[in-house]
Design a protein around this nucleic acid. Structure first.
Lengths: 146, 146
DNA sequence: TGATTTGACTTTCATATCGCAATCTATATA
DNA sequence: TATATAGATTGCGATATGAAAGTCAAATCA
């Protein structure tokens, strides 16, 4: 039996609760980060993230993200074994939230030193920075997918 | 022994990871919502939220939020039994992230019908709406605390 | 072409966390 | 003094996590 996220049933019609049910765990946001900001799209690439997610958890979370319409799975056109995961438009729309979250962390915890250039760009132009990342993610998909 | 949040140790210096370690569970964001948007500050008020958090979980999360500098605990000046929880400035700075998250949910899941007026206000003036909520939270604290 | 390796999972299992119910403590009220 | 209330803590079965090992099909090597 495969592992599930806690409380998979809808608890309320509140948008905060809806978000919690999608991204409210220890790994989903990190996977979204790698996909949206780092141009990662393979199982092995997500697995290689600094925080070292276990393979069973990663598989569960990718399925979870697909179920909730944040990622789509494709066959790697250049390797029959490979799978490629790409963000949907819904996930791309999450970029402003993700980057705002990062900026919040970075403001209050200066020890969060990763993504310093991105944080600087975001502070001088939040909207433009988010849109830039969105466009970059779209281009990356075009480059890799047939 | 009291229950803990998963992975209490710092896994990386990434701001996304830092956020996950603070808000990456099924309840913390809901408590922040009630505190920042609903003027709730008592244990029983948080407990009464629609999603029905258990008392042990709520106690754990309130402690967790205090540890991470998002809330402060006070004695109720009008009832020796009571405790009052209020957001720190760090928590108030989270309001824009929280409201952006809600807007994202609301855009892609129209069944999230709660907070419709807030969502409408946010769409027409994101920054002003967030600042308004921040000021409201500050005023509420002044009103209730000595 | 058979052997080996690789990518993407799935299974196993010990440990940790969740969540319900019951209990506890301090203060307030009748 | 008795009871009610606010804010928790404890016990315990159910569920989720995470490290390691196993599976399997497709690719690469000999």
């Amino acid at each position: 039996m495969q592992s599930k996220l806690p409380s998979s049933g809808t608890r309320s019609s509140c948008p905060v609760n809806a978000a919690v049910e999608v991204i409210g765990d220890q790994w989903t946001l990190l996977i979204l980060r790698d996909m949206l900001l780092q141009e990662r799209c393979r199982f092995s690439e997500f697995r290689g993230s600094e925080e070292s997610v276990a393979t069973n958890i990663l598989a569960t979370r990718l399925k979870h993200l697909a179920t909730h319409g944040l990622i789509e799975k494709f066959k790697d056109p250049e390797d029959g074994r490979g799978a490629l995961y790409f963000p949907t438009e819904r996930a791309l729309d999450f970029i402003p939230v993700l980057v705002a979250t990062m900026a919040w962390s970075n403001t209050h915890q200066p020890e969060t030193t990763k993504y310093a250039p991105l944080m600087a760009a975001y502070r001088s132009d939040p909207h433009g920075t988010a849109e830039g990342l969105k466009e970059r993610a779209r281009q990356f998909r075009k480059k890799v997918l047939p």
